[in-house]
Amino acid sequence: MSALSQALWVLLLGSLLGLELIGKVPPTLHTPLMSGANAISGITVLASLTLIAQANGQVPLLLLGSLSLGFALFNVVGGFLVTDRMLAMFSRKKTRSGGAG
Protein backbone atom coordinates (compact mmCIF):
# COMPACT_ATOMS: atom_id res chain seq x y z
CA MET A 1 0.00 0.00 0.00
CA SER A 2 2.88 2.38 0.59
CA ALA A 3 3.75 2.22 -3.10
CA LEU A 4 0.15 3.19 -3.87
CA SER A 5 0.03 6.09 -1.45
CA GLN A 6 3.36 7.27 -2.84
CA ALA A 7 1.94 7.11 -6.35
CA LEU A 8 -1.15 9.05 -5.24
CA TRP A 9 1.06 11.75 -3.71
CA VAL A 10 2.94 11.96 -6.97
CA LEU A 11 -0.38 12.31 -8.80
CA LEU A 12 -1.58 15.07 -6.47
CA LEU A 13 1.64 17.07 -6.53
CA GLY A 14 1.99 16.67 -10.28
CA SER A 15 -1.52 18.04 -10.80
CA LEU A 16 -0.87 21.01 -8.53
CA LEU A 17 2.41 21.68 -10.30
CA GLY A 18 0.63 21.64 -13.65
CA LEU A 19 -1.97 24.15 -12.45
CA GLU A 20 0.72 26.48 -11.10
CA LEU A 21 3.11 26.21 -14.03
CA ILE A 22 0.75 27.50 -16.67
CA GLY A 23 -1.34 29.80 -14.50
CA LYS A 24 -0.63 32.87 -16.63
CA VAL A 25 0.04 32.47 -20.33
CA PRO A 26 -0.37 35.17 -22.99
CA PRO A 27 -3.15 34.20 -25.44
CA THR A 28 -0.54 34.22 -28.24
CA LEU A 29 0.96 31.09 -26.80
CA HIS A 30 -2.20 29.13 -26.10
CA THR A 31 -2.10 27.13 -29.31
CA PRO A 32 1.64 26.30 -29.08
CA LEU A 33 1.22 25.49 -25.39
CA MET A 34 -1.67 23.15 -26.12
CA SER A 35 0.38 21.49 -28.82
CA GLY A 36 3.45 21.23 -26.57
CA ALA A 37 1.46 19.84 -23.65
CA ASN A 38 -0.09 17.38 -26.06
CA ALA A 39 3.37 16.22 -27.13
CA ILE A 40 4.30 15.69 -23.48
CA SER A 41 1.19 13.56 -22.97
CA GLY A 42 2.77 11.18 -25.46
CA ILE A 43 5.04 10.18 -22.57
CA THR A 44 2.93 7.02 -22.67
CA VAL A 45 5.93 5.80 -24.72
CA LEU A 46 7.32 4.78 -21.33
CA ALA A 47 4.35 2.50 -20.71
CA SER A 48 4.64 1.05 -24.23
CA LEU A 49 8.35 0.31 -23.72
CA THR A 50 7.66 -1.28 -20.34
CA LEU A 51 5.04 -3.51 -21.95
CA ILE A 52 7.52 -4.63 -24.59
CA ALA A 53 10.21 -5.21 -21.96
CA GLN A 54 7.87 -7.39 -19.89
CA ALA A 55 6.50 -9.30 -22.88
CA ASN A 56 8.82 -12.26 -22.36
CA GLY A 57 8.61 -13.32 -25.95
CA GLN A 58 4.78 -13.33 -26.15
CA VAL A 59 4.16 -12.09 -29.68
CA PRO A 60 0.68 -10.58 -29.07
CA LEU A 61 2.13 -8.47 -26.25
CA LEU A 62 5.09 -7.42 -28.38
CA LEU A 63 2.67 -6.49 -31.14
CA LEU A 64 0.42 -4.46 -28.84
CA GLY A 65 3.43 -2.78 -27.28
CA SER A 66 4.95 -1.93 -30.62
CA LEU A 67 1.65 -0.60 -31.97
CA SER A 68 1.18 1.47 -28.84
CA LEU A 69 4.77 2.74 -29.11
CA GLY A 70 4.07 3.79 -32.70
CA PHE A 71 0.95 5.76 -31.74
CA ALA A 72 2.68 7.39 -28.78
CA LEU A 73 5.79 8.31 -30.76
CA PHE A 74 3.63 9.76 -33.53
CA ASN A 75 2.16 12.00 -30.84
CA VAL A 76 5.56 12.87 -29.35
CA VAL A 77 7.62 13.45 -32.50
CA GLY A 78 4.82 15.16 -34.42
CA GLY A 79 3.78 17.21 -31.40
CA PHE A 80 7.22 18.60 -30.58
CA LEU A 81 8.10 19.32 -34.21
CA VAL A 82 4.83 21.05 -34.98
CA THR A 83 5.15 23.13 -31.80
CA ASP A 84 8.66 24.09 -32.83
CA ARG A 85 7.38 25.08 -36.28
CA MET A 86 4.80 27.38 -34.72
CA LEU A 87 7.21 28.92 -32.25
CA ALA A 88 9.88 29.44 -34.90
CA MET A 89 7.53 31.97 -36.49
CA PHE A 90 7.56 34.12 -33.42
CA SER A 91 11.28 34.68 -33.60
CA ARG A 92 11.78 37.96 -35.42
CA LYS A 93 15.06 37.14 -37.12
CA LYS A 94 13.33 34.70 -39.44
CA THR A 95 14.02 35.26 -43.13
CA ARG A 96 11.20 35.68 -45.59
CA SER A 97 12.23 32.70 -47.70
CA GLY A 98 11.61 30.24 -44.90
CA GLY A 99 7.99 31.23 -44.51
CA ALA A 100 6.22 29.14 -47.10
CA GLY A 101 4.28 26.32 -45.66
Binding site: L11, G14, S15, G18, I22, L33, T50
Partner: peptide
Protein backbone atom coordinates in the same frame (compact mmCIF):
# COMPACT_ATOMS: atom_id res chain seq x y z
CA UNK B 1 -4.98 8.52 -19.67
CA UNK B 2 -1.16 8.74 -19.51
CA UNK B 3 -1.26 9.07 -15.72
CA UNK B 4 -3.57 6.05 -15.52
CA UNK B 5 -1.17 4.10 -17.73
CA UNK B 6 1.52 5.16 -15.26
CA UNK B 7 -0.42 3.42 -12.49
CA UNK B 8 -0.88 0.35 -14.72
CA UNK B 9 2.86 -0.13 -15.35
CA UNK B 10 4.02 1.47 -12.10
CA UNK B 11 5.89 4.48 -13.48
CA UNK B 12 5.92 7.59 -11.33
CA UNK B 13 7.44 9.69 -14.07
CA UNK B 14 4.46 8.85 -16.26
CA UNK B 15 2.07 9.79 -13.44
CA UNK B 16 3.72 13.19 -12.89
CA UNK B 17 3.86 14.07 -16.57
CA UNK B 18 0.29 12.90 -17.19
CA UNK B 19 -1.00 14.87 -14.21
CA UNK B 20 0.79 18.03 -15.36
CA UNK B 21 -0.69 17.77 -18.85
CA UNK B 22 -4.12 17.00 -17.44
CA UNK B 23 -4.01 20.13 -15.29
CA UNK B 24 -2.66 22.26 -18.14
CA UNK B 25 -5.46 21.14 -20.46
CA UNK B 26 -8.09 22.02 -17.88
CA UNK B 27 -6.75 25.57 -17.45
CA UNK B 28 -6.61 26.12 -21.19
Amino acid sequence: AAAAAGFVVGSQLLIVAGAMVGAAGLIL
